[in-house]
């Protein structure tokens, strides 16, 4: 599979010496909508806006491994305390919350898709975006991946994979940069980094590979 990448943006949190985490600038979102944005939605919309603010008819695919899991935890805690669920939290707890917000923000009525596929959510989400472009090469496709560490209550420590960041790619047939993706089966030790970070390494350095669940993903950059 070949992905023509016309634009790409990454948002990474900066952690200050006192441990506070920076938030992305989303001042382009009007205040009444902005107040409903989770930290995941903020970074998703930041890179989506950077990639496609001037392309109102782009189709878009949003992918995340854990999505708005933090909101689900908030609701489960309310239920455990026999409190009423917050309608605002409930309405924004679905996987396609950011995709919906993006369509409202951009007044973009093109089809959108939300994908979650375990720790390979980035790879399969990008595959979906690439296939959408192949099915209709005239219209660009925006691909957004964002994820956050799993809430502590799950007792699953994924800090070492450094998953919290967002990546946006604009796929367009006229792009000069092409990313070739191949996969193969093997039993290599699972990679220690998030799949999306391996892909960013390819964008920056020319190639990268990533292993999990008996599969190796390999990406290579070519500039025409």
């Amino acid at each position: 599979m070949i992905f023509p990448v016309a634009r790409w943006f990454v948002w990474d949190p900066c952690i200050s010496p006192v441990g506070s985490v920076s938030a992305p600038d989303v001042s382009f979102v009007e205040p009444l909508l902005r107040r409903r944005l989770s930290s995941l939605a903020r970074m998703s919309l930041r890179v989506a806006y950077d990639c496609a603010h001037d392309i109102p008819n782009a189709r878009f695919v949003f992918a995340s491994q854990h999505g708005e899991l933090a909101r689900t935890v908030t609701m489960l805690e309310s239920l455990a305390e026999k409190e009423a669920l917050s309608p605002a939290v409930f309405s924004m707890s679905v996987l396609n919350a950011s995709a919906g917000l993006f369509s409202i923000l951009q007044k973009n009525v093109a089809p959108s898709t939300a994908i979650s596929a375990g720790c390979s959510s980035f790879g399969y989400g990008l595959l979906e975006a690439g296939l959408q472009l192949a099915s209709n090469p005239q219209l660009p496709v925006l691909f957004i991946y964002a994820d956050e560490s799993v809430p502590a209550v799950y007792g699953q420590d994924d800090q070492h994979r450094n998953v919290t960041h967002a990546v946006g790619l604009l796929l367009q047939t006229s792009a000069e940069m092409h990313i070739h993706c191949t996969t193969s089966s093997n039993n290599d030790i699972p990679s220690d980094e998030a799949q999306s970070r391996a892909f960013v390494r390819c964008l920056e350095q020319g190639h990268a590979d990533w292993h999990d669940a008996g599969k190796t993903w390999f990406w290579e950059k070519e500039c025409r």
Partner: peptide, 16 residues
């Protein structure tokens, strides 16, 4: 400029 979700949210806050 509040919306219908705000109305529900406000109802819950008043009840609480």
């Amino acid at each position: 400029g509040l919306d219908s979700i705000d109305a529900l949210e406000l109802g819950i806050a008043l009840r609480k």
